[in-house]
Simulated assay, not measured.
Amino acid sequence: MTDEASSGTPAPGSNSATTDGDAAPRGDRDIVTLFTKALRALGKAGRPDEAMTLAGQAWWGLKDSDPRAAERVNGTMHYLARVMAGDEKP
């Protein structure tokens, strides 16, 4: 049995992003988390239109295959809309 399988944590040098028995990636390594953080940073950097376009494309690609991830991207789009309206400090 490997260290990862016995302890539930990845062995050093392992690139596994899941926990033992759970197919969902861990928080800080989850691609949707990284993507939404990047979109928010792009919006804060004065490029909310570009971030919104990317977010919309991601939402469209996720809505049928991963509705939960699509909802997370949707939340980011709501944040970006506030940035675009000037309601959120960039």
Rank of each mutant, 00 (worst) to 15 (best):
P25C: 08
P90V: 12
D87P: 01
L39E: 04
D20C: 11
T2R: 12
S6M: 14
R40Q: 08
R72M: 05
P10F: 05
G46K: 03
D64H: 03
A11F: 04
V83F: 02
S7Y: 07
D66Q: 09
T9M: 14
P12Q: 03
F35Y: 13
R68S: 11
Y79S: 10
Q57K: 12
T36R: 04
R72W: 06
N74A: 14
P67S: 07
S16A: 10
K63Y: 09
T9I: 07
T9F: 10
L34N: 11
A69S: 15
T76Q: 02
W59F: 13
D49V: 11
E88L: 06
H78D: 01
K44E: 15
G61N: 07
A51K: 02
A81G: 03
T19I: 01
D64L: 09
K44A: 15
L39C: 03
N74Q: 15
A38I: 04
L54G: 02
T2C: 10
P10K: 01
R68F: 14
K63F: 11
M52P: 01
E50L: 11
G86F: 08
G43F: 10
A58C: 06
A23L: 02
A85V: 01
D22K: 00
T9N: 08
G13Y: 08
T76E: 01
R72N: 10
Q57D: 13
W59N: 09
K89E: 11
R72I: 06
G27A: 11
D64S: 10
R40P: 00
T18M: 11
G8D: 13
T18G: 04
T2F: 08
S65G: 09
Y79A: 04
M77Y: 03
W60L: 14
T19N: 06
A69F: 02
P12L: 08
A55N: 01
K37F: 10
S7H: 09
R82E: 12
E88P: 00
A45Q: 14
T33P: 00
E4P: 00
D49G: 01
K37L: 14
A17V: 12
W60G: 09
W60K: 13
P10V: 04
T36V: 15
G86Q: 05
R82L: 13
W60A: 11
M77D: 04
V32Y: 04
A17G: 05
M1E: 14
D30P: 01
D20A: 14
E50C: 02
D28L: 06
G61A: 11
D66W: 00
G27Y: 12
S16F: 02
M1R: 07
S7K: 07
W60F: 08
T9K: 08
K44T: 03
A85Y: 07
P12M: 07
P90C: 03
D64N: 12
N74Y: 13
A23D: 10
T19Y: 13
G56M: 01
R26H: 05
G27I: 07
T76V: 10
A23V: 05
P10C: 02
Q57W: 04
